[in-house]
Simulated scan of single mutants.
Amino acid sequence: MTHERESPHPEQPGAELAALLRRWWEGTGGAFDGRRPTQQALAARLGIDQTTLSRYLNPKHTSTAPPGIVEALHAHLRAPASELDRARSLSRAALEWNSRQRAVCPGPADRTTSGSTGPDGASTAGVSTRPAGRGPRFRRARPFLALAVTAAVSFAAGLYADGGLVPAGQAGTGSGQRGAAGAGASARTDQADRADRTDRASEEWPLLYMDKNAVDRYAWGRALQYLLKEHGYDVRADGRFEETTHEAVMDFQEKHQLQADGKVGNHTWPELLEQVAPGDTGPAVRAVQDLLNNVGLGATAVSGHFTAATAEDLKLFQRTHGLPVTGRTDRATWLALLVNQRPPVGSPDYQRPENRSPVPPT
Rank of each mutant, 00 (worst) to 15 (best):
P80S: 09
G107T: 06
P108D: 15
E96G: 01
G115Q: 07
R111P: 09
L84W: 00
E83Y: 12
S91K: 05
A109Y: 08
R88C: 05
S114R: 13
A93H: 10
A93R: 04
S99G: 07
A94C: 11
L95Q: 01
S91L: 06
T113G: 15
S91W: 02
R100T: 02
R111G: 11
L77I: 06
D85S: 07
R86F: 02
A103E: 05
L90I: 09
T112H: 10
A79Q: 02
A93V: 03
P108Q: 12
T113A: 14
A109T: 12
P106Y: 05
H76C: 06
E96Y: 10
A79M: 08
A103V: 10
D110N: 01
R78Y: 10
R100S: 06
S89I: 05
A79S: 02
R88D: 03
V104M: 15
S99I: 00
P106D: 07
G115K: 07
S82A: 14
R92V: 04
A93Y: 09
A94F: 01
T113N: 15
L77S: 04
W97R: 12
G107P: 11
W97V: 11
E83H: 04
C105N: 15
G115N: 03
R86E: 09
A103D: 03
D85I: 12
E83F: 00
H76D: 14
A103T: 02
R92M: 06
A109I: 03
R78K: 12
H76T: 10
A109H: 04
S99C: 00
E96S: 14
Q101N: 11
P106F: 08
N98I: 00
S89C: 13
L77T: 02
L95G: 08
E83K: 02
L90D: 01
H76V: 06
S82P: 04
A94G: 01
D85W: 06
R88Y: 10
L95H: 05
R78M: 14
V104D: 08
A79E: 01
D85F: 09
H76N: 13
L84I: 04
P108H: 10
A94Q: 03
G107K: 11
S89W: 08
A87V: 00
D110F: 04
A81T: 07
A81F: 10
G115P: 04
R111Y: 14
P80R: 01
C105K: 12
L84N: 03
R100P: 00
A87N: 00
S82L: 11
S82R: 15
W97C: 15
W97M: 13
A103I: 00
L84S: 00
S99V: 01
R78C: 11
D85T: 14
R111S: 12
H76P: 07
R111M: 05
G107A: 08
S89E: 10
C105Y: 15
S99H: 01
G115S: 05
D85R: 13
D110H: 04
P108S: 12
W97S: 14
L95Y: 03
R88P: 08
